[in-house]
Design a protein around this nucleic acid. Sequence first.
DNA 1: GCTATTCAGTTGTAGCTACAACCATGTGTG
DNA 2: CACACATGGTTGTAGCTACAACTGAATAGC
Lengths: 165, 165
Amino acid sequence: MFPVSTRWLDDAEMTAWVRLAAVLELLPGVLDSQLRRDAELTHYEYYVMAMLSEAPKRTLRMTALARRTNATLPRLSHVVKRLEDRGIVERFPCPEDARATNARLTAAGWKKIRATAPGHVETVRQHVIDVLTPEQITQLAEITGAILESVDPEGNLSAGSSVTL
Amino acid sequence: MFPVSTRWLDDAEMTAWVRLAAVLELLPGVLDSQLRRDAELTHYEYYVMAMLSEAPKRTLRMTALARRTNATLPRLSHVVKRLEDRGIVERFPCPEDARATNARLTAAGWKKIRATAPGHVETVRQHVIDVLTPEQITQLAEITGAILESVDPEGNLSAGSSVTL
DNA sequence: GCTATTCAGTTGTAGCTACAACCATGTGTG
DNA sequence: CACACATGGTTGTAGCTACAACTGAATAGC
């Protein structure tokens, strides 16, 4: 259950890991500060709005929304409450299941994400997409796919699951 | 300064980005919980200890330590204070420059990271290194290198800079 | 049909990070 | 040498997330 002797990382592995760790540390801050500056949003809040905007009737159950945004329910609950206070989303009980709550993007929220998306996409392009070749884009998708499969084997947090249904 | 018409992401770009975003969201939590469970450490605290353990005399100036751990000075300052309270590092004024502070790993800290490293490396292997082929390890290093260069052009936060001085 | 268990979500709180303000030391300029 | 400015670091605080505890509704067992 634990290794007799540790298999340390060789040079190539260490380089890849150190850089990935740096990206993990720095990239979220870059995304957050652009969104914060231009729209008073965190990247996670943006992502919540984006998932709602793509859903039928711009509505999703909290559990479904949590899965699509790779977050726990408590975290989502806090975030949605704050977005509700700002008039960006609204919550209402699910008619089919009295336990469940639906979250819906308001008209104001829809307007806001439409206004915010171009700047955000530009940031993603500038720091990720446009610095890579098309082959590297493909490689990145495969690499992150493999990592996600080990981090989230059952695809409970479905965001990146290999087979896009 | 902002684009006339947004260049949206195509399918391949979107897949890569969605998965990378998922990794950004999920992987830190996986690392943190293993370290927290086994050693009462966050991944960032571990990284601080690791950088100190590799430095001459297990000592670094706060500024240098902040750069190597991809963090701001205020963040590091708070973290080092907490580690100091736990007897893992100690701080003392730098003799050459009265403004500067040195952080040094204590004997207890050295012992602790030696005990913690195997489990942490095993986690990194399990979720990142061992799920990738050797070619993918190389690709990952190049991809993250390119991202870091755009996120941190001057290499102010040196962790992953292309040319390892 | 009553009880136990699971499911869906909310709430409370501790702890970490970001940001801004601050202090002290060092460096350059007239 | 007096001043401005830059450098190195700490501290205060607001805000977000993780974790645990909790409530209420659905489901399963007997």
